[in-house]
């Protein structure tokens, strides 16, 4: 079970959180003209990297904030966590 540092609450066990996928995905602007291919890339296609991955987690059984986690998908090492409006330090 991972131990994740919520930027608002501190270190908590994984079972308080839910996973939210790739944090680098940007939703297309509202009303933006967009090709089906680009839209499908946004909706369906995700990289599945081995190694460092920037991802979203939601502190559902806590402060209910979404935040960013930089995690190694192979080793589960967590390099850093930060609020949505912040950048990772490492």
């Amino acid at each position: 079970m991972l131990e994740i540092k919520c930027p608002y609450c501190g270190k908590r066990s994984q079972n308080e959180f839910s996973y939210g996928g790739d944090a680098t995905i940007k939703r297309p602007q509202l009303g933006e003209e967009i090709s089906t291919e680009d839209w499908d890339n946004f909706v369906y296609y995700r990289d599945n990297p081995r190694g460092k991955h920037s991802e979203l987690w939601h502190h559902v059984s806590g402060c209910r904030q979404w935040f960013k986690v930089s995690r190694d998908t192979a080793t589960h090492e967590i390099f850093d966590t930060c609020k949505m409006n912040e950048d990772f330090n490492v």
Binding site: S18, G20, H58, V60, R64, Q65, W66, M84, N85
Partner: peptide, 17 residues
């Protein structure tokens, strides 16, 4: 109920802060 709340929070905190 719980999923909708998480959904709304996601859009407010992540997509349209």
């Amino acid at each position: 109920a719980a999923n909708v709340l998480s959904h709304l929070e996601y859009y407010l905190q992540v997509v349209w802060p």
